[in-house]
């Protein structure tokens, strides 16, 4: 239960952050994709840099996780065809809707009813990908950060 409560609090912080940084604004995203606004790219570079430094520090210091005292570690993710195929589709949708999965949730939370359409599409798309992965018996993909299409295969 502790893990879920902590994850929920991180989710609140992340949702708040998405609204504060205007990742929930169509013009902020499309402006970045049209290479007219630098904000998203500068923030993204800083975020990746912070994460790399933080994770390397944790690992090199031999840190253990706070909840179960296990070594800090993560699975390796070698490049695969589906990284390209899936990302081509995702990038297209991102540009069309001007939103990605996190901001869609934060928009709905702010009372934006139109975003219920994006949310419905998002959830249906995930369900379709999972169903397709099951049908075609895709081999289990080591996924970095969630969103494995085959995650729930028995």
């Amino acid at each position: 239960m502790r893990k879920r409560v902590i994850a929920g609090l991180f989710g609140v912080g992340f949702g708040f952050w998405l609204a504060w940084t205007r990742m929930t604004d169509f013009d902020q995203i499309v402006g970045a994709l049209l290479l007219q606004r630098a904000y998203l790219w500068l923030m993204f570079a800083t975020g990746v840099f912070t994460t790399i430094v933080g994770l390397q520090l944790l690992q090199r210091a031999g840190a253990v996780t706070l909840l179960r005292h296990e070594p800090v570690s993560w699975p390796s993710v070698p490049p695969q065809r589906r990284h390209v195929v899936g990302s081509l589709l995702f990038g297209t949708g991102w540009a069309l809707a001007g939103a990605c999965p996190g901001p869609i949730a934060a928009q709905v939370g702010a009372g934006r009813l139109s975003s219920l359409f994006t949310l419905a599409g998002l959830l249906a798309g995930i369900a379709l990908a999972d169903a397709w992965a099951r049908r075609t018996a895709q081999p289990r993909v080591a996924s970095p950060c969630a969103g494995e299409a085959t995650e729930n295969l028995a």
């Binding site: 589709l89 939103a99 999965p101 950060c145």
Partner: peptide, 25 residues
Amino acid sequence: LLAGGLLIGFGARWAGGCTSGHGIC
């Protein structure tokens, strides 16, 4: 938005992550 959402959901799930999952994490 519905079409965009479908592409986002299917594509990101198929690729195993989106802007936060692959991009940052």
